[in-house]
Simulated assay, not measured.
Amino acid sequence: MNEVVLPNDLTQLTTEIKTYQSIGGQAIFEIGRRLKWVKDHDLAHGEFGKWLESIQMNHRTANRFMKITTELANWAPGSNLGWKPLYLIATMPPDEREKPQQLDSGEVKKPDEMTVRELQEVNRKLKEKEESLKAKDRQINQQAEMIDRLNEREPKVVEKTVTVEKTPDDYESVKQKAQQADSIKEQLEKAQKQADYFKKESESAKQLIKIQDDEAEQKRLERLKRKADINIYTLSYNIKNFLNENMLLDDDLNHLSEMSNEAKENISSRLNELQKFIDLIRQTTAGRKIIEGSFK
Rank of each mutant, 00 (worst) to 15 (best):
E3W: 06
V5N: 11
P7Q: 02
P7M: 03
N8T: 11
D9Y: 15
L13Q: 11
T14D: 05
I17Y: 00
T19Q: 06
T19C: 09
Y20V: 13
S22M: 15
G25P: 00
Q26K: 02
A27W: 12
I31F: 04
L35K: 03
W37R: 02
K39E: 05
L43G: 00
H45V: 08
H45F: 10
F48S: 05
G49N: 14
E53G: 09
S54N: 02
H59N: 14
M66C: 01
K67D: 06
T70K: 07
T70P: 02
T70R: 13
L72P: 00
W75T: 03
N80R: 15
W83L: 03
M92N: 00
D95W: 00
E96K: 11
R97M: 03
E98N: 04
Q102R: 14
G106H: 13
E107L: 12
K109S: 05
K109P: 05
D112S: 07
M114A: 03
T115V: 08
L119Q: 00
Q120C: 08
N123G: 08
R124Y: 12
R124P: 00
E130D: 09
S132A: 14
K134E: 11
I140T: 01
Q142K: 11
I147A: 01
D148V: 04
R149G: 01
L150M: 04
L150K: 03
N151L: 12
E154Q: 05
E159P: 01
E159F: 07
K160H: 10
K160M: 05
T161P: 00
V162F: 03
T163E: 08
E165M: 01
E165N: 06
D169W: 05
D170Y: 10
S173Q: 13
V174K: 06
I184E: 13
E186T: 12
Q187N: 03
Q187V: 09
L188T: 01
E189N: 05
K190R: 04
A191S: 02
Q192I: 10
Q192R: 11
A195C: 02
A195N: 02
D196M: 12
Y197Q: 10
F198Y: 01
K199T: 12
E203C: 10
K206E: 06
I209R: 01
L221A: 02
R223K: 10
N231Q: 12
N231D: 05
N231E: 13
I232R: 04
N241R: 07
E245A: 12
N246S: 09
M247R: 04
L249W: 00
L249M: 13
D251L: 06
L253P: 01
L256D: 09
S260N: 03
N261R: 09
E262M: 07
E265S: 10
I267Y: 07
S268I: 15
S269G: 10
F277S: 15
F277A: 08
F277P: 01
D279L: 14
L280K: 14
T284H: 09
K289H: 13
S294A: 14
K296M: 11
